[in-house]
Design a protein around this nucleic acid. Structure first.
Lengths: 185, 185, 185, 185
DNA sequence: TCCTAAGCGAGACGGTACGTCTTGTCTTCCA
DNA sequence: TGGAAGACAAGACGTACCGTCTCGCTTAGGA
C-alpha cells in the first residue's frame, strides 16, 4: 500500500476515536496526514470512500485467515464460523472506535460497512461449509447469521459489563449453530 | 398530529422514493411541503430528526398491535414474535423506499433506525415471553434475533425474486425459534 | 446602496491599501466585512466584479459633477475638461491605493478600470463640447486625451516630488488643449 | 535564444489568440510546448514572467530600429517619434491578440506591459530630441504622449473600421506634435 | 568506449483559493 | 399572531492551479 494512503487511513482512524465520522472534515484528515487536498482526492472520492477502503483492507485480511483456519482439521462445528475469533479480536482492539458507532448520526455509515463486511465473511463460510441448499435458501441463512452476529457485536462492544472475546464467541456459536442446523439439517 | 408535521413527513417520504436521504436538502423538503424554513426548525431539529420521528410513529403502531396479539390465546410459538406479520406487511407496503436503503451512502441512517426499531420490538417480545434469564443473557438473544431479522428483511426487500410475506415470516421463525430455544431451554 | 455592498466595498478598499489586489482573497474581504461567503457571491460574481462596481460608482459621481460644471458659465477653455479638478482631487485623496497600482501583477486590473473610466468621462466631455467631427475622428481625440491624462496621473501619483492638484491640472490643460485645437480647429 | 524558451514563447502566443491570458494555465503552456513543468520554472518565475519576457524582446527590437531611424537625416518632425511606423506595423501583425486585450479580466496585464513599453520607447525619443527641460517637466510630456499613443492604438486595433497604419500614424502625429510644441517651445 | 553530468519529460505532491452548496438563525411582512 | 419568504454568517465541499520536488531517460563531452 502506498505511503500516502497509509497516512490517510491512519489519520482517519485516529480522528474517528475523537469524534463522530460525520463531524470529521476532509481538511482535518489531510492536516493530520500532512497531505495536500488534491492528493487526497487523487486517491479517494471523498471521506466515505476512504472509510470504505479501510473496511476493504480488513476484509482481505479476514479472508486470508479464514482459509488458513479451514486448512486445519477439526470438527464441523469447529470449522464453521472459524473466523469469529480473529474478527472479535480485531473488534476488541479497536473498541475505542465505538463512541463513533453508537450514535446514529455519524456512525450509521460505519455500521453499514461493518454489517456488509460480516455478510461477506459469513457468506464465504456458509458457502464453503454447506455446498448444497436445503429448504431454507442459503442466502437467507447468511443474512440471518450475519445480522445476528452484528447485533451481538454492537451489544458486546457498547456494554458496560466487560465480557471476554471467548465468552462472546461462545454465545454466538450457541445461538448461531442451532439456527443453521434447523435450517439445513 | 399537527397538519404541518404531516405535511413534512409526507414530503420527506415522497422525496425518499426519488433519491437518497443524504441528497435531500431541507430546502427541498419545505418546498414540497409548502412550509417556511423557520416552521420546519420549530418542529424538528434537522432532517434526521424528522426521519427519526417517522420511525417513532411506526414503533408506537407496532407496539399496539403487539399487545393485541398477545391478548389472543395461542401456543407459545405462536405468541412469540407475533409482531412479525404486521411488521413485514408494513415493510412490503413501503418497498419503494428500498433504493434509498441499499446504498451505504444515504441509506445508512435509515438502516440504523430500522435496526433500532427491530431491537426494541424484539426486546419487548422477548422480555414478556421469557421473564427469567438463562445461561445466555436475555439481551444477547434480543440483539441476535433482531439483527437476524434485520438481515433477512434487507435481503428479502432487495431480492429480485418475489417472496410473499408469509414465506419470509416462516423463514424467520424457522431460524429464530431454535436459536431462542437453544439459549433458554 | 445596500448595507452589505457598502461593507464589502469598504473592506476591499481598506485591504487594497495594504496589499496588491491579486493577493487579496475573497475570504479576507468577507472576513473584514463580516459577511458570509454566500452573501458575497449573491451580490458579486467575484472580487473583480466588486472592484469594478466601485469604479462604476465613482463614474456616476463624476458624471453628476460634470453636468453641474457645464451649467455654470465660462470660456470654452474653462468648460472643456471641467471634470479634471474633481477627478484629480479624488485621486489625491486615495493616493494610498497607489502601491497597489504600480505593480503590474496586482495593479493591472485597477489600471485598466481607471483608464476605462477616464475614457468615458473624456468622451462625454468631448462629445458635448465638440458636436461636429473634424478631420480627426472624435473618438481618436477622446482616446488620445484620456490616455494622456491617464499617463499623467500615474506619473503624478507615483512621483516622489509632491505636486499640487492645481499644478497637474494646468499641465494637463497645457498639453491637451493644443492637441484638441490642432485636431478640430 | 534557447530552444526551450522559444517553444514556450510560441506556445503562449498561440494560446493567447485562443483565450484570455488569465484563463491560460501553466499546464496548457507546457503541454503545447512539449516541455516539462520543472523546465518551465527553470526558465521563468511564472506565466507573467514569460509574458513579460516577450515584451522585453520586442522592446530591444524597437530600440534598435529607433537608433537606425535617428541616424538617417530628416526634419525634426520627421525624426520625432520615428519609431511609430515600426511599432504600428508590429501591432498590426499581431492584431489577433486583440480579443485577449480588450477584456479587463485577462488583458489587464498585457495592456500594462504594452503601456510600459510605449513609455520607455517614447522616453528614449523625447530625451534624445529635447535635451533640455522647459516649463513642462519632460517626463510629464513623455507620459502624456505615451498614454495618448496607447489610447489611440487600443482604439485602432479594436475598431471595426479598418484604418491603415499610415493613417493612424498621421493621426498620432497630428495630435502629439502640437502638444509637444506647446509644452516645449 | 565508457561514464559522468546536465537537461529535460513526466508527474506526484503540499498548499491555497475558488465558487457552490447547505445548514440553522433571524428578520420582515403578509393574512 | 403565526407562518411563508428569504437574507444571512458559517463553513465544508470538490475542483483547479500553483510552484516544488523527485524520479528516470536521454544525450553529449571528457577520460
Amino acid at each position: 500500500m502506498e505511503r500516502t494512503q497509509q497516512l490517510l487511513q491512519a489519520a482517519l482512524l485516529s480522528l474517528i476515536k475523537e469524534k463522530e465520522f460525520d463531524d470529521i472534515s476532509v481538511q482535518e484528515i489531510i492536516d493530520r496526514a500532512n497531505v495536500g487536498r488534491a492528493t487526497f482526492y487523487a486517491h479517494y472520492d471523498n471521506k466515505e470512500d476512504l472509510l470504505e477502503s479501510g473496511f476493504e483492507d480488513l476484509h482481505s485480511k479476514l479472508k486470508e485467515r479464514q482459509s488458513e483456519a479451514r486448512a486445519r482439521k477439526g470438527s464441523l462445528d469447529e470449522q464453521l464460523f472459524a473466523f469469529s475469533q480473529h474478527l472479535l479480536d480485531h473488534a476488541d482492539e479497536h473498541r475505542d472506535i465505538l463512541p463513533s458507532m453508537v450514535s446514529g448520526r455519524g456512525g450509521a455509515l460505519i455500521q453499514h460497512l461493518l454489517r456488509h463486511l460480516l455478510v461477506r465473511v459469513v457468506r464465504e463460510d456458509v458457502t464453503t461449509m454447506m455446498p448444497k441448499a436445503g429448504a431454507v435458501p442459503r442466502e437467507a441463512i447468511v443474512q440471518f447469521i450475519a445480522g445476528g452476529l452484528y447485533g451481538l457485536m454492537m451489544w458486546w462492544l457498547s456494554g458496560k459489563r466487560r465480557m471476554s472475546v471467548d465468552e462472546l464467541d461462545r454465545l454466538f456459536r450457541t445461538l448461531a449453530i442451532p439456527a443453521v442446523k434447523a435450517a439445513a439439517p
